[in-house]
């Protein structure tokens, strides 16, 4: 699974994003994190193998999320669906 790490000054939280490479909301979310200097990792689900996609879907559903992208997981606990700057700010304390 190709996880891309985007470096940033704010490393307080572990941020993982499941995204789609063609999705404008995902792009906006990535930009939001970069603008706020948040270090994060992302996986473009559409570029993954079917096996990996299955793992990602299972992971999202196991956490009670819906299969909608972007899905952000903060510190392995909090799950945020969609482009939601307010929720991200709250979860990251920024």
């Amino acid at each position: 699974m190709d996880k891309v790490k985007v470096p940033g000054k704010n490393k307080k939280h572990k941020v993982l994003m499941y995204a789609i490479s063609t999705c404008a909301w995902c792009k906006k979310t990535k930009k939001f994190l970069v603008d706020n200097e948040v270090e994060y990792e992302y996986i473009d689900v559409d570029l993954c193998s079917e096996e990996d996609r299955q793992k990602i879907r299972d992971d999202i559903r196991r956490r009670g999320g819906s299969l909608s992208y972007p899905t952000i997981i903060v510190d392995d606990k909090k799950i945020i669906t969609g482009y939601s700057p307010d929720e991200i700010k709250e979860a990251l304390g920024i």
């Binding site: 299972d58 009670g64 999320g65 819906s66 299969l67 909608s68 969609g82």
Partner: peptide
């Protein structure tokens, strides 16, 4: 997807 996934839709969510 596995059928059991379908039977229990995500709880909570803004979702589906």
């Amino acid at each position: 997807m596995a059928p059991e996934v379908i039977e229990k839709p995500a709880r909570a969510t803004v979702g589906v």
